[in-house]
Design a protein around this nucleic acid. Sequence first.
DNA 1: GGTGGGTTACTGGTAATACCACTTACTGGT
DNA 2: ACCAGTAAGTGGTATTACCAGTAACCCACC
Lengths: 277, 277
Amino acid sequence: MALKQNAADQAADRIRKGILGGEFPAGTTLPGERDLSERLGVSRLTLRSALANLQAQGLIEKVHGSGNLVLDYRERGGVELIAHLARHAIEGGKVPLSLLGDLLEFRRLIATELLGLVAARATSEELRGLRTHRATMGPLLGDADAFMRADLQFARLLVRAAHNLTLELLYNTVQRMVMDHPGLEAAFGVNAPATLKTYDRVLELLESRDPDQVRAFARSAFEPLDRRTMDRLEEVARALEGAGQLKKTAGTPEAKTPSAPAEPKSSRSVRAKELEE
Amino acid sequence: MALKQNAADQAADRIRKGILGGEFPAGTTLPGERDLSERLGVSRLTLRSALANLQAQGLIEKVHGSGNLVLDYRERGGVELIAHLARHAIEGGKVPLSLLGDLLEFRRLIATELLGLVAARATSEELRGLRTHRATMGPLLGDADAFMRADLQFARLLVRAAHNLTLELLYNTVQRMVMDHPGLEAAFGVNAPATLKTYDRVLELLESRDPDQVRAFARSAFEPLDRRTMDRLEEVARALEGAGQLKKTAGTPEAKTPSAPAEPKSSRSVRAKELEE
DNA sequence: GGTGGGTTACTGGTAATACCACTTACTGGT
DNA sequence: ACCAGTAAGTGGTATTACCAGTAACCCACC
């Protein structure tokens, strides 16, 4: 989304909304391109560009001579769709807690395995590079923007040190999702002091070269952080609901049973601190 | 892109090859659309469709009024690129062992975490569904095609049972990569009897509801399987090399030993060599 | 001589139209 | 009842023209 939406992107957004919203059910075909382009007020050319976009995301399948078939996004949609799903929900006045929870969890799982790889095969130069970069992050605590950039760079170094190109490209995909959808920044925003503290411990464990231990720490350290983030988001959702302007999120209907029993509330002071930023 | 390549896809392929092959270095801009379309023998319209494709993959960035900027695919390319990288290498007469190794490893890591989630939160109905489906797979051992479909369905049930939409969509992305690039089937081909045996053990562990134990088994069981696959691929590569028709590809297959804190030569250089034409 | 602003010659973005290629369904024959 | 041929729908591509940004260049002005 961002701010520079050309006509094609806008058209794609509207159609995507129609698909995700049930106006164009999976299994059916979209209206003809000539018809649809007229409805959306764009040329057929622009419409086709939008459709190409949707096809790349696995929402539709173009069938020459037949029509544009609507697919079931749960069975065919690509990862990038998560960001769109979240955004459509937010624009619809909901805070998609379930979606954002899945996304945070996903990031956690990837990070865990990533660190395992790094512990196993990073070169000592790479570990030194991580330490060096970490040292430059302390003074940046005041500058939120600079810190964020440094944080991204740290993540980049980690991904490189895992020596797995697929993971590296997946990281690109995730980062792009966040960048393209400013609304997601909240969920992915970093708690700077806690982040640095965690990084220090991670670096120690990486240098011990024990993948199991690093993974264990990642599992124990990241989950509470994300839970705090979810608490924050939940408050936002409640506030919106309380204001009566907006509906509550439904999310996915399935029951969510986290592995660990949720600790009701974190301390107010910590959360308030996080909110400052 | 399988066999049904329309003009736009072909054009995209050629440009992508040019980018990945160094003809269009990152940081530069592609030739103008009017110029480029003429060179490729397609209309500017088709060319633009191809460029939109490349943009979606993070290979280029369109800048109105300036040009089509070539990006560094390692920093911006999406996951889907892995399949293209592999295909371009294969078409260039190489077996991209390193890339395929990364891809297999990636699948392994995802599967490991996935199973952890399933153990933690699958409903008993879902576990029963998995058992039921497993029971139907035995008789299919003779029919490779039917078995593959059943295997995909088993994976789908597992992904559903993890109750994480992001993971589900990622699974879609990976599956699509494999489907769209028939050359990858070899690497992802299943060893039917061994697969079923592993599934049985996995189901047992899932029913024990112990994520740690399931993950531990996944780590120990999947890696040898993938190593066998890599050995097979290596033989193919050697055979091709021996035939003198094709150029050599990557060297050390044991470079990827997760448990060893070895500090081997960076696999990056190996990859770079493969990518050259 | 240095600087500012505006012109100009690129770039990509969109539109309208016409025609090709493929699919489907209807229709007429057998 | 069946089959073949046809017609009308679909998406795919090409051509042409014009709109909209960008950047460099050049000239007037300070």
